[in-house]
């Protein structure tokens, strides 16, 4: 009987090595923080308006409402802040990989010859920081496809160019 792992006869093939991964732009942390604060602000204002206009009588548990908002956003902030350094990507000769996640780590690799199309998006806050999102679509389930946030607009365009040339060539 053969062992599948020992049967791998190819003596050398490129391995995905941790040290090759590059971190995304540091500026992107500012985008994340701004996004969190925008939501935080909206929620707080929401609760405040409800209390102020007395649409619903929530005065008895107002303290808990604010407190839980604070706790939840504190946790989100902490996870995003600590998880930020885990967001890394690498573009190799024939594939592109992205890893992220603090509590749930995920590394996804998409080979170029399975890519259907590429997209570069820019949100309003990202545009201010000159950052972009690179999305890679395959024929698989699109929600599981690869998406790299927080690339310099220029880098994203370069990567897109590189991948397109690799696919055609």
């Amino acid at each position: 009987m053969l062992n599948s792992f020992q049967n791998i006869t190819v003596t050398y093939f490129p391995e995905l090595v941790d040290s090759e991964f590059k971190p995304i732009e540091k500026k992107y942390l500012k985008v994340i923080i701004s996004n969190i604060f925008v939501f935080f602000f909206i929620f707080t204002v929401g609760v405040f308006t409800v209390d102020f206009t007395q649409i619903l009588d929530i005065s008895s548990f107002l303290f808990y409402a604010y407190f839980s908002i604070l706790i939840i956003f504190g946790l989100i902030f902490l996870v995003q802040f600590l998880g930020f350094t885990k967001r890394k990507y690498v573009v190799r000769e024939k594939d592109i990989s992205y890893k992220s996640g603090l509590l749930f780590k995920k590394t996804t690799t998409v080979p170029f010859n399975r890519i259907q199309h590429l997209e570069i998006d820019q949100g309003p806050i990202s545009r201010f920081f000159d950052l972009a999102v690179l999305s890679v679509f395959t024929a698989g389930n699109s929600s599981d496809d690869l998406k790299i946030r927080g690339l310099k607009q220029e880098d994203a365009a370069k990567i897109k160019e590189f991948i397109s040339s690799q696919i055609d060539g």
Binding site: G101, L102, L103, F104, K105, K106, T107, T108, T109, V110, P111, R114, T138, A139, G140, D144, D145, L146
Partner: peptide, 14 residues
């Protein structure tokens, strides 16, 4: 036939 591959792990698995 594979489109792309992922590795996932939770902190417990790590």
């Amino acid at each position: 036939k594979i489109q792309h591959v992922s590795l996932t792990k939770t902190i417990f698995q790590e």
